[in-house]
Write a protein that binds this DNA or RNA. Structure first.
Length: 259
DNA sequence: AGCGATGTTCGCCG
DNA sequence: TCGGCGAACATCGC
């Protein structure tokens, strides 16, 4: 279930459960989730200790002695830390067994997540061409990222090379709050709109983190609870419009978000 | 039982 | 060479 707020929640979960734990054994249940060979993957992590976790966009980097474990959750990734005598969670793809008789399971139902090993975080971010982290970036970072781009605001926000961490759901919310039509070209935005966009990115993501990414608990004033066919705008009560973009479904209020 | 899903990547086109 | 766009990927729940 991961966009930036969910991944930040996973980061905190890792920090509170797995930090400082020593890995006894790594079990790979489905090697298709790995970006490198199973043997290399295991060799990097076995007999090693979780040292720290950092997040960039929807990616987590877990530091070990010599390298980093990179986690990406795709659309259906999850983590579970549990006592070793408990039943293995369904759809577990990789299990990290610690010397304290607890296990961290990396779960992925639909195989869109990925686990990788990196030598250096900055290098990895550069190679993947990831843009600035949506929560940490400055206003200048955002405008630099948008330079020379001509696509629409919805596509831009979901493009991880432009801004890292925002996906389909949160981009809808951010654009709704900024009262911009999702198909507006970014090179047509005024300075004032860009400033509002920037501050709404921060506010929406921060709210999401505080709510631990549990969408069902979000305020009814948000668009998110109304991302449905036949639902209505929480501000003006106009019927929400659903449209297709990048093979995904976006939602917006045709009255609050005129082009 | 077919559709939709909180994501990324690749290949084609201009 | 770069940006934009659509299709492909895998699989489950509703």
């Amino acid at each position: 279930m991961p966009e930036l707020p969910e991944v930040e929640t996973y980061k905190r979960y890792l920090e509170s459960t797995s930090l400082g734990k020593h890995i006894n054994r790594v079990k790979v249940r489905d090697s298709r989730i790995l970006e490198l060979g199973e043997k290399d993957f295991i060799k990097n992590l076995q007999e090693n200790t979780f040292k720290s976790v950092m997040r960039h966009g929807k990616y987590l980097f877990i530091a070990f002695d010599l390298s980093y474990l990179v986690m990406h959750f795709g659309m259906t990734g999850d983590l579970e830390y549990y006592a070793i005598n408990r039943e293995e969670p369904k759809y577990s793809k990789v299990l990290f067994e610690f010397t304290n008789n607890h296990v961290l399971s990396y779960i992925s139902i639909r195989m869109f997540g990925k686990l990788d090993i990196a030598d250096d975080v900055k290098k990895y971010i550069k190679e993947k061409k990831l843009g600035p982290d949506a929560l940490k970036m400055s206003f200048e970072d955002l405008t630099n990222s948008l330079k020379r781009r001509t696509t629409n605001i919805k596509t831009a926000l979901m493009n991880q090379e432009i801004v890292c961490g925002i996906g389909n759901i949160y981009s809808d919310e951010i654009i709704f709050r900024t009262n911009i039509n999702p198909l507006t070209k970014i090179n047509h935005l005024e300075e004032k709109q860009l400033r509002a966009l920037f501050s709404n990115i921060k506010d929406v993501l921060q709210y999401g983190i505080e709510k631990k990414g549990e969408l069902s608990t979000y305020s009814d004033k948000f668009l998110i609870p109304h991302r449905n066919r036949d639902d209505f705008c929480p501000v003006c009560h106009t019927k929400i419009k659903r449209y297709e973009i990048l093979g995904r479904h976006g939602f917006f209020c045709p009255s609050c978000q005129k082009q």
